[in-house]
């Protein structure tokens, strides 16, 4: 186990306008596995991601990373060397005034100058891009290329844990498979732990070793992919699966 999340809660607002975006959520991440959080919009899945990354203060609960309490860190530099992220929007996650090179060079501060150049080439290699891309501005790249650059940025740190928050949902299906394959390759070749957050059960099914299902801020079901997706126990998971349109009609008949 590399990461332990226990009784994580996030409350937005005060008094009567309180919203419990994340409500007493607990789960573990196994080293070298891809874990997927599935949930619809408003389920609180992205809020979980932002709290794990230390980008959003936590209302209550504890986060333990490699045996160390990381719930309230003052200095996150060391933490971010090990926990990195890729976000949803391939447009707004780029500073449009920066070239790819400038974006990646920023990470040098955490990586160190000597290791940096080597890491940079290595990271771009992992996502199948060459050094030419360094001089490009984001608007000169396609959506799929942008997301690969973002993954490369995260890989610069050689993180132990990569959190991908809806990282493929704004991409065309053909590019999506590509990015998902990059993630499985990273798991297989580097033993990277991945937390993949999505609203799409199809992607979860393809990618995940374990699946967690969230509804209205609560974790309603978790387990190995095959169990959760092909013999769901919670009513919400069942409904979700029944409502997902399938490509082949035979399968639909099997669903309850």
């Amino acid at each position: 186990m590399i990461y332990d999340v226990s009784h994580l809660t996030k409350v937005f607002g005060r008094g009567r306008h309180q919203v419990r975006a994340v409500d007493d959520v607990s789960f573990e991440l196994e080293e070298g596995q891809i874990t997927t959080i599935v949930g619809e919009s408003g389920s609180g899945k992205s809020t979980v991601a932002r709290m794990l990354l230390g980008l959003l203060p936590i209302t209550s609960g504890t986060l333990t990373f490699r045996g160390k309490d990381v719930t309230h860190l003052r200095d996150r530099a060391e933490y971010w060397r090990q926990v990195q992220a890729v976000f949803q929007d391939p447009f707004s996650s780029f500073n449009q005034f920066f070239t790819v090179g400038k974006l990646l060079n920023r990470s040098m501060k955490l990586v160190g100058k000597e290791a940096g150049q080597q890491r940079l080439e290595e990271s771009l290699g992992h996502v199948g891009m060459d050094l030419e891309v360094l001089d490009r501005y984001p608007h000169q790249l396609s959506g799929g290329q942008r997301q690969r650059v973002m993954i490369a940025r995260a890989l610069m740190m050689r993180p132990a844990l990569l959190i991908a928050d809806e990282a493929t949902s704004m991409l065309d299906a053909s590019l999506r498979v590509n990015i998902l394959n990059v993630l499985t390759d990273l798991r297989d070749s580097l033993g990277m732990t991945v937390l993949f957050i999505t609203h799409d059960i199809g992607q979860a099914c393809y990618l995940a070793d374990r699946v967690l299902v969230m509804e209205h801020g609560k974790m309603v079901e978790q387990g190995p992919t095959d169990e959760v997706i092909f013999s769901p126990r919670h009513a919400y998971t069942k409904r979700l699966l029944a409502d997902v349109p399938k490509l082949h009609s035979a399968l639909e008949l099997e669903q309850p």
Binding site: W80, S92, K109
Partner: peptide, 25 residues
């Protein structure tokens, strides 16, 4: 609120660097 600010933080950029290079432009 833009995601590139989060990305900059994760890259280790400090407060003033983000202000000058990610917000100001």
């Amino acid at each position: 609120e833009r995601e590139h600010i989060d990305v900059a933080k994760l890259s280790g950029a400090g407060f003033w660097s983000i202000l000058a290079r990610d917000v100001l432009p």
